[in-house]
Amino acid sequence: MRKVICILATGLLFISVSCKGEKKDEAKPEAEKTTEKATTTDEKVKKVKFALTSKSDSDVTGNVVFVEKYGIVTMTALMEGLTPGKHAIHIHAKADCSSPDGKSTGGHWNPTAQPHGKWGAATGYHKGDIGNFDADDKGNGTITFQTDQWCIGCDDDTKNIIGKAIIVHQGTDDLTSQPSGAAGARVSCGGIIQ
């Protein structure tokens, strides 16, 4: 009788250990699924970061970051070396900052052939008409701009900012003068390149 009890106890122990092993194997694929979901979510975020270099004998430099998340692009630009006061910032047509005056970038990025104006104006505006920002007494300026009318590397030529440039101007965009807002010299430039 003792032999039978020992055999049954050993069998139950074996079954118990086997079942625990199966539960561990089942848990492993679940953890892998969680990791895949996190990766998929991260792929929806696109980012481009680049430096701004001085143009037109200025000392204006800085950094720009574009982040696209769920169809919204946020631009954050930090600049230094500016004269205190208001300055214009635009997206220009070409990511070519090779000329000393920044004019190698061409005119404002305007893929929908609209007149220059204030962003969102019913009378029209360029997709590159970001607007004005303030530089403080030390010559530092910051601007954050957000829109669903841009994208980073998509197939829509009327929204894709890759291959364009950021230009910071010496003066203020009056938001009406054609075709550029009479914002003055191009004092800093950076190509939007992935």
Rank of each mutant, 00 (worst) to 15 (best):
K24L: 14
G124F: 02
S98R: 07
T34I: 04
L52W: 00
A27G: 09
R2T: 04
D155F: 12
I15H: 13
G191I: 00
G181F: 02
G163Y: 02
S98K: 11
A31H: 14
N140E: 15
I5S: 15
T10L: 11
A95N: 12
C189D: 02
C6M: 05
D57S: 13
N110Q: 11
T35L: 11
K138W: 05
E26C: 03
A122I: 08
I192C: 04
L12K: 03
T10M: 09
N160P: 00
A185N: 10
Q149I: 01
L8W: 09
S177F: 08
A51K: 12
D57N: 13
E32H: 10
E30K: 11
E43H: 03
Y70E: 05
S56H: 02
L8F: 10
F50S: 02
V4T: 12
F66E: 03
F145K: 02
K164N: 14
I89H: 03
A135F: 12
H169Y: 06
I152F: 05
M1G: 11
C154M: 01
T123M: 06
G11S: 13
A31V: 09
D134M: 15
A77E: 05
I130H: 01
I167Y: 03
K33S: 09
T40L: 08
V187D: 03
A165E: 00
F50Q: 03
I5Q: 15
S58L: 00
D155N: 15
A9G: 08
G163D: 01
V17Y: 12
P100S: 15
A183F: 03
S180V: 14
W119V: 04
H92V: 07
D134G: 11
L82K: 08
G81C: 13
Q146W: 02
A31C: 06
T172P: 00
H108F: 13
K24R: 13
G131K: 01
E26N: 08
Q194E: 08
I193F: 13
I143K: 05
C6E: 08
I15Q: 15
I7W: 10
I91K: 01
V168I: 14
S180W: 13
Q178W: 07
A121L: 03
G11M: 07
K3S: 09
A77G: 05
S18I: 05
T53A: 06
G153Y: 00
K127V: 06
A51H: 13
G124Q: 03
P100Q: 15
K3Y: 08
G106K: 11
K86Y: 07
I161Y: 01
Q194M: 05
G11C: 06
M79S: 15
T10I: 11
A113R: 14
F66H: 04
G153L: 02
D173C: 10
N110K: 09
P179D: 15
A31K: 13
L82P: 01
G171S: 10
T158G: 09
K24H: 11
G85F: 08
V187F: 04
A95W: 01
